[in-house]
Design a protein around this nucleic acid. Sequence first.
RNA 1: CGGGACGUGGCGCAGCUUGGUAGCGCGCAUCGUUCGGGACGAUGAGGUCGCCGGUUCAAAUCCGGCCGUCCCGACCA
Length: 568
Amino acid sequence: MRWSEAFIPTLRDDPADAEAISHKLLVRGGYIRQLMSGVYSMLPLGQRVRTKVMKVIVEEIDAIGGQEFLLPQLHPAAIWEKTGRIESMADIIMSFEDNKGGTVVLGPTHEEIFATVGTELTSYKQLPQLWYHIQTKFRDEARPKSGLLRVREFTMKDSYTFDVDFNGLDIQFDRHFEAYKRIFDRLGMDVVAVHASSGAMGGTASIEFMVRSDVGEDEVAACTACDYAANVETARSTLAPIVDPEDDVAIERFDTPDVRTIADLESFEGGAAATQQIKTLVYVLDGELALILLRGDHALQEQKLQDATGSIEMRPAQPDEIRGLLGADAGSLGAVKVENVTIHADSELRGRRSMTTGANENDVHVRGVDVERDIAVDEWIDLRTVEAGEECPECGGLLEIFPAIEVGHIFKLGTFYADKLGLSVLDENGKAIPIVMGSYGIGIERNMAASVEANHDDAGIVWPRDIAPYDVVITVVRPDDERSTEVSTMLYESLIADGVEVLLDDRKERPGVKFADAELIGIPLRVTIGPRGLDNGVVELVERKSGDKREIAIEDAASNVMEFLGAT
RNA sequence: CGGGACGUGGCGCAGCUUGGUAGCGCGCAUCGUUCGGGACGAUGAGGUCGCCGGUUCAAAUCCGGCCGUCCCGACCA
């Protein structure tokens, strides 16, 4: 492509509405333009990168036996009703009424639809299967942000596996795990695989692939000593045991005027350290009030609560609901002797005694609480959010917590969809068995952006070879110089003949503008051709990533470019 | 959904407090001089000031409503 004929609208200034680096650079580099909140147009450069990201993914998924499909974006609402996800995903599902009055869902993902095709599977002999497609998804995110990182319309590669049993699923899951690692490596990103919550996917296990980044929306807890890593939504840690006094103390009420918080009670005369307090929260789980108990200094991890209870709708209770249930306001709540409501307690409270908590009467607390003796706990579960600096549950090392971008997510779905949509095959004995499914997603545009977040410098983007929009840019310093034009045209045509994707910067611009643009858009290799070098019979090769420059004899230019592209 | 900010040529912004019919930088066009790191000079094109309504002799500016965009939070496979 000749730059003089290309549409590459680069910008000198950062766009006013961009915050994330990838957002700024992709807009400034002429890759994307916003149409509305969370919806972007791919310009030619952007589309070239997008295509290459998809190519990398297709290669790696095909390599583990994937078969490419293309399923529709328009779905009948009825299918989504069958799995109940029209409810559980209601806040992000986009839908409309067609001319016949039927509700049409714009697909936010494709488990239901692949499963529907999968109903044609009838025999165990047909399994396993690995199906995938690359298709547009629509999700009405409450708050799109950071350019391509969080949008409402995007492309996703999603694959689905079908197996006769969980053993088969494990194999396909592991293959995806390895394929995904290869994909992210080729996209130029260091990923950490973390255990995650399966959320609304209805699955049994899932792994997220995370790239450390300040603009990431997820938080990862990772051990600095071993390879334990988990989304904070599921992360565990080991705490130093607390030894409570052995003697049996009785419960004792005491007045605590104006004490409303854990901190208040800590500093209150006759109060208690946060570690000696019980924090009592009231939640509404699928319409039912429930008490949540944690140690005073611990924070509730809502995702853990949701996962452990299997509830779909979850929210903190309103003040009037709390008063109706316990007869006091938040700040004076406790679970001692409370009945007729489910009590979920964090495991760290188990066996604790001499604890202090609210008395369910404003301005009154009780001390001397023996958790197991005095509270009718229904369920002991892990509910707390881990903190940086705590001990790794695997090796005892230190945990750190950092923000990260979720670039991929793989799920063991199990038989959820088989049960809901009737997927089964006959086994060797002629007996119907449910098909065990897995699903595996990678967001294309998010990965483009995440790659930029991971691969840039002050001058602009530094694309990894596999997804750069062009392999090499030939910068013609003086397009009005006859020799320069001659040599650059020759090299341009020779490289094209060899299958190299080359951008020839033949614009009538000053050299500084051309250099700056080449660096902004991030082409891995630049060949600079100008009278100064040609006088000495050389052209200059500049590697974008390192900035390393080499002078090469004119006649060796093409072979050196080929070598660079083949080698590094 | 709660809180905050913003909306003025293609891009980035000023003007609004103290109403008088729009300006700067970049970019763009033409010409000339330049030319290995974002040149200079000259001339020029380009704007329903987000939309609707109100106040006023007069509204980018004041008032009301709406829409849109961004940021923080909530939410989020």
